[in-house]
Amino acid sequence: MPKTQGAASAPKTNQTGEELVFTRPASMVDRATHYCPGCHHGIAHRLVGELIDELGLKENTVAVCSIGCSVFLYNYIDVDSVEAPHGRAPAVATGVKRARPDKFVFTYQGDGDLASIGMAEIMHAANRGERMSVVFVNNTVYGMTGGQMAPTTLIGQKTTTCPGGRCKDREGSPIRMSEIIAHLGGTAFCARGSLDSVKNIRQAKKYMRQAFEVQTKGLGFGFVELLAGCPTNWRLSPLAANKRITDEMIPYFPLGVFKEVEGDGTCGSMLAPESAPGAEGGK
């Protein structure tokens, strides 16, 4: 059975002895989101809020928001935040973290932002082993601009810029970001979770906790990819979109931990031969 989720404070009890076991996390603002019905960004936001509460980081966090549907993250999560140019959230976060190493710094990016225009920034931030955490929401489409093809769009998926479906010969195969990031030297934790079912959401939260904790322990770069649905741009109902994640996305984007580094947080431990590319594999 799940423990008390949401607010990190002691569970609330009313006059009749009922216990409030699930509510909005304290670091999440009570405001309706602008997301479409069934959009998984709301779940990802809540998980971020719950973890910030549970790890006691609310007063010590700087969020770096990206461009895309998640652009208004600062409206929903009650922490200090910086808005980065498109794709440049890891570069901005690098600056924030180096100027204020005592702060907890995380970026929240979508696949159009991180895997396309921001590919260089994310690769080099991971390779340098910046002490930051990245939440990467992958819904295989550019959501905010109206459903164009993204680097992660699945083969055969129809979008407004590939109306006949993505063709492997013409546009290449979808990029598996977690596998790429796992092979870079500075990555301390890399995993892929999914937000399509209760079980997967609980597992994704555990991955996010680890990605956050590698930063607080000073081990290196924490990366977590979350498979999410975009019912509006997939032209599906929210329930059908969830089913598509299970049936089509998870077989191509396998879930699990791709890299997990144990160490004391010194550069030496990260550069040790046992953490060299090829030594770690997806489980």
């Binding site: 009922e18 409030l20 076991v21 699930f22 509510t23 909005r24 997301y35 069934g38 709301g42």
Partner: peptide, 15 residues
């Protein structure tokens, strides 16, 4: 409540 994307559900558990 876990799957609700809009945190619209609160859960109360009684004895």
């Amino acid at each position: 409540a876990t799957i609700c994307p809009d945190v619209a559900i609160e859960v109360w558990r009684g004895k």
